[in-house]
């Protein structure tokens, strides 16, 4: 699979996880924040890690 397809697949997984119906009405706190907020902050971090791992390019603009 090409680099581009890995990036696309990983971001699609994160996009599905973005729709966290499973704790839509949960009021627990995780790391001091309501879980519905903590989850989405963690998603931001997960996107950063995903792009760091998969989204590699060379100087010409081709995916390496």
């Amino acid at each position: 699979m090409t680099t581009r397809r890995w990036v696309l697949l990983a971001l699609l997984v994160l996009f599905v996880l973005h729709h966290d119906l499973w704790w839509w009405d949960a009021d627990d706190r995780v790391f001091g924040l309501p879980i519905g907020l903590t989850w989405h902050v963690m998603l931001c971090l997960a996107v950063a890690v995903t792009m760091a791992v998969f989204a590699k390019v060379d100087d010409s603009g081709s995916e390496s």
């Binding site: 966290d20 519905g36 989405h40 998603l43 996107v47």
Partner: peptide
């Protein structure tokens, strides 16, 4: 808090893509 999911984390996924 739903605003963060609606406007922030959606941008965090879509915009880098």
């Amino acid at each position: 808090i739903g605003v963060f999911a609606l406007m922030a984390s959606s941008s965090a996924i879509v915009v880098p893509a």
